[in-house]
Computed example of a mutant assay.
Amino acid sequence: MHNIAEEITGEWLRHIKKCEFVEYNVKGPHQTEIDVIGLNIINKEIYVCEVAAHIHGLQYVDPQKRRPDTENRFIHKFTKDQEYVHPHFDNFTKHYMLWSPIVKSSKEGAKYDALKSVLNAKEVLKKSGIDLELVINERYHAAIQDLRKEALKQTHDLSNSSVLRYLQIEEYLNKYLSIKK
């Protein structure tokens, strides 16, 4: 079972990146789970996506230390993802992506800052060969707009995707209402 944020990610991979296969909640060794994987077989590309849809802003907390642990969480997660994916898709171009709609920057001098944590994780991961693409904030919104445009192009029933079907209905309703006025 996947959630709506994972479906947005998967549908973007399917329709915008033309992935022929999209899989959700892929279980790997050592209790790892990748939220969304997309395969574009023709271009030999794999998209490895972690999705965190915290509507009040991204932040993970270490339960033992009782303090934010966002940076370490993503470093660990993407390192495990790389260990799982790399040997199986050696000849594929790998795209590691973090999808999160709201990643806030804290006020100057704040002890914890989610945006800085994500950017720090990105830098640490880069040193280990993972070029993490951030689909956050404005870029997340742009991805939804990409899907909205895609849904508007389609005239057939998109019931196999609740996200695309919703966007399709909304866009066609907007067209209808503007004509009706």
Rank of each mutant, 00 (worst) to 15 (best):
K127T: 10
Q31R: 12
D35P: 13
H76R: 13
K27N: 13
P63N: 05
K80I: 01
V118C: 01
G28K: 06
S106M: 02
H76N: 12
V118P: 00
K94W: 02
V36C: 06
P29M: 04
Y96M: 06
K122H: 11
I55M: 07
S105W: 05
N120T: 06
T32P: 03
G109D: 04
E20P: 03
P87W: 08
H76A: 11
K107R: 15
I42W: 05
S100W: 02
T79K: 06
H56W: 05
V124F: 01
N25Y: 12
Y112C: 04
E108D: 07
T32L: 12
K104V: 02
K80A: 11
V85W: 00
V103N: 07
H95W: 14
M97G: 02
E83I: 10
T79D: 04
D62P: 03
K127N: 08
N43P: 01
G28L: 05
H54G: 03
K126N: 03
R67Y: 05
R73Q: 13
A52K: 15
N91F: 08
Y47M: 07
S100L: 04
V118L: 01
A114E: 12
P29V: 02
D69Y: 10
K94Y: 02
N120C: 02
I55R: 07
H76C: 11
D35R: 13
V48C: 13
L115F: 01
D62N: 15
Y112H: 11
D90G: 08
S117E: 00
K127R: 13
G38K: 12
A114V: 12
N25P: 05
L98M: 09
W99F: 15
V103K: 07
D81P: 00
A53R: 10
E20Y: 03
H95V: 12
Y96Q: 05
L58C: 10
D113M: 03
A121Y: 01
L119A: 09
I42S: 07
K77F: 00
F21G: 03
F21S: 11
L115Q: 07
I102E: 09
G109V: 03
V26Q: 11
I75W: 04
A52M: 12
D62M: 07
V48I: 15
D35A: 15
L115A: 04
P63Q: 06
Y84R: 08
T93D: 09
V61N: 15
M97T: 07
E108I: 06
P63W: 05
H95G: 05
